[in-house]
Amino acid sequence: MVEWLKLVDKARSRSIWMLMYCTGCGAMELPPAMTSRFDMERFGIMPMATPRQADVILVTGYVTKKTLKRIIYAYEQMPAPKWVVSHGSCPINGGVYWDSHATVNRLDLFLPVDLYVAGCMPRAEANMKMFTELMDMIAKGEARGWEEYVKNRDYYKENQRKLFGYDLVFTDGRSAL
């Protein structure tokens, strides 16, 4: 009943809760954005401790294979309208670590990315621009990444299986008591 109100998209855009997970080196420019100089909280953006409470997961910089598994797990624990923002060039084509055997060169094969931010470690101003950009997209209802993940889930799961070599299923049926 609440769903169709235009108000809801406006509310969602004005109160984005970011998962407090510094996955890569870009996380060094998030604290200045959070604290007194750039202060993202004036847009209603707050870092939250657990994926259950978060709306957006920031993949800040390069993604190692080990971290990607945890990002996917956190992403799947987040409630429905959720978005992924990737910082810098490393999640696009590997960036400066293009030839490293430990990093994954392209993120959007495994997770639907809604917004890319330029900069090999985007500056604090770039982060603020990213937040305002994300707010506009949500307000207009364009950020549909999570529906993407639901619709062609087997495409993403297939990619993940090819990358890790085994099915990335985080909860087998045994614990459904």
Partner: peptide
């Protein structure tokens, strides 16, 4: 009842600092 939906989750899908159980 008037707020959004919810989905049932298995028992081993809990917050474990993003470390799969």
């Amino acid at each position: 009842t008037t707020s959004g939906g919810s989905r049932k989750v298995n028992l081993d899908d809990f917050y474990n600092s993003a470390e799969p159980y």
